[in-house]
Design a protein around this nucleic acid. Structure first.
Length: 440
RNA sequence: CGGGGCGUAGCGCAGCCUGGUAGCGCACCUGUUUUGGGAACAGGGGGUCGCAAGUUCGAAUCUUGCCGCCCCGACCA
């Protein structure tokens, strides 16, 4: 993409409303625009990141055997009455009346609806297990939206629902998602720690939150230090036994504030005790027949007897992750994107648009990057060097290629690694090789 | 939902206390000179001062009501 043809409204000054780093940088980098409290437009740069995260989440869900579908944002109140949640959910649910005075709502989650879908079609235990998911916008009318997209009212969430005949089988599904989540967050370039969690209003008795450690986190969390650096499971057989992965993580202490047990925590060696602020980016629940029972979602077992299906639900805050990743990956100059989610792979800076040789070299490098699939952003604006440098640092692409008249005379371009700040002077060919290898 | 704060040009702010018809920096437009870490000079455009009512000869400024947004807390993906 050529910057001159793109839509990248960066801000030089920090908007007064933004107090946390990710919110400030998202506004300044032209990723989002606030429309009202907790509701945002995703501008082109932000949209790219959102879609990249979404795609990684999708791929890891598919690997784990979950099947993608799409349910609507608007739901009928009737379904929620069946489970008693229409009254239980409270003012956080946005209630709407249609022209026929029918009560509708903008879905804050989809347990009720997916249970309805399931019971409409599935009759036999032979169809189990099943894991279904969608990636859809949710609305929760928070009393106090804040921190930009990290606590919006409208947000994009991946929610998976598992259906099994028995609790024992449901725990296997739970472990699949537990494992998939570890891989997902690792691919996103962040360290998310699974922590024993309160089940909240969704209910159930087995639940973990996946938490990124960051100073701006909303809640306090406690865990064993080793959990933070533990390598992800990587390629595993999702049809095989995954309990060792679950056991390995859960044998070390990790809990959110509500579930914190100071006595247990104290048993950890002092140098391994970690208490920090955390951002919840994923949450998984097992809740048995909480919804299948009232909604009569049953399948025939091998004896021909109807059984309530045992369910779990598994959420990842896709839009929240954009902010969460920035909280974990930024410096004083701006965002430092992990390669996997960066909006563009490499930024090319032409230091002097009026210098003909410079233009030829930069355009040539740009076109080669396109061919190599590096997804480059070419700053072909007439701005001065300083403006281009600081803008490129702000939007945080993993690599910057600086092409200027001075270097070209020596036959070199400068390659800057955004994360380390390290710069190398290389021939264009060597620079290209470096980039291709970096993204291989 | 309790407590606090803010709303004046696209962004960041001053002016309000003490009423007299709106200003600064950045951004934007034109021109010239510049061009390796947010250039300089000259000229220019842009605001019914959140909305409504009231007080007054006169309201950004005083009064009342409403709306919007932010921060702390409680609540939550």
């Amino acid at each position: 993409m050529r910057l001159s043809r793109y839509f990248l409204p960066v801000l030089k000054e920090t908007p007064a409303d933004a107090t946390v780093a990710s919110h400030r940088y998202m506004l300044r980098a032209g990723m989002i625009k606030q429309n009202s409290a907790g509701i945002y437009t995703w501008l082109p740069l932000g949209h790219r990141v959102l879609k990249k995260i979404e795609q990684i989440v999708r791929e890891e869900q598919n690997k784990a055997g979950a099947i993608e579908m799409l349910m609507p944002t608007i739901q009928s109140a009737d379904l929620w009455r069946e489970t008693g949640r229409y009254d239980a959910y409270g003012p956080e649910m946005l209630r709407i009346t249609d022209r026929h005075d029918r009560e509708m709502l903008f879905g804050p989650t989809n347990e009720d609806m997916i249970t309805d879908v399931f019971r409409s079609f599935v009759r036999s235990y032979k169809d189990l297990p099943k894991m279904l998911y969608h990636i859809q916008w949710k609305f929760r009318d928070e009393t106090r939206p804040r921190f930009g997209v990290m606590r919006g009212r409208e947000f994009l969430m991946k929610d998976t629902y598992s259906f099994d005949l028995t609790k024992e089988d449901a725990v296997k599904s739970y472990n699949k998602m537990f494992t998939a989540y570890l891989n997902t967050f690792a691919r996103l370039g962040i360290k998310a720690v699974p922590m024993k969690a309160d089940t909240g209003p969704i209910g159930g008795d087995l639940s973990h939150e996946f938490v990124i450690l960051a100073e701006s986190g909303e809640s306090e969390v406690f865990c064993h230090r080793d959990l933070v650096e533990m390598a992800p499971p990587g390629d595993v057989d999702f049809e095989g036994d995954l309990s060792h992965i679950f056991d390995e993580r859960t044998s070390l202490y990790a809990a959110t504030e509500e579930m914190h047990d100071a006595e247990e925590f104290a048993k950890i060696p002092k140098d391994k005790q970690l208490s920090a602020r955390g951002i919840e980016v994923g949450h998984i629940f097992y809740f048995g027949d909480k919804y299948s029972a009232p909604m009569k979602a049953t399948v025939m077992d091998s004896n021909g007897k109807p059984q309530n299906v045992m369910m779990g639900s598994y959420g990842i805050g896709v839009s929240r992750l954009v902010g969460g990743i920035i909280e974990a990956c930024h410096d004083e100059n701006g965002i430092v994107w992990p390669k996997s989610v960066a909006p563009f792979g490499v930024g090319i800076i032409n230091l002097n648009m009026k210098d003909e040789a410079c233009g030829v070299a930069a355009t040539d490098f740009y076109e080669k990057c396109v061919e190599a699939g590096l997804d480059p952003l070419y700053d072909d604006s007439p701005d001065r060097g300083g403006v281009k440098f600081s803008r490129m640092d702000l939007i945080g692409l993993p690599y910057q290629i600086v092409i200027g008249p001075r270097g070209l005379k020596e036959g070199i371009v400068e390659v800057k690694d955004r994360a380390t700040g390290e710069r190398q002077n290389l021939s264009p060919e060597a620079a290209m090789n470096l980039l291709v290898e970096a993204f291989a």
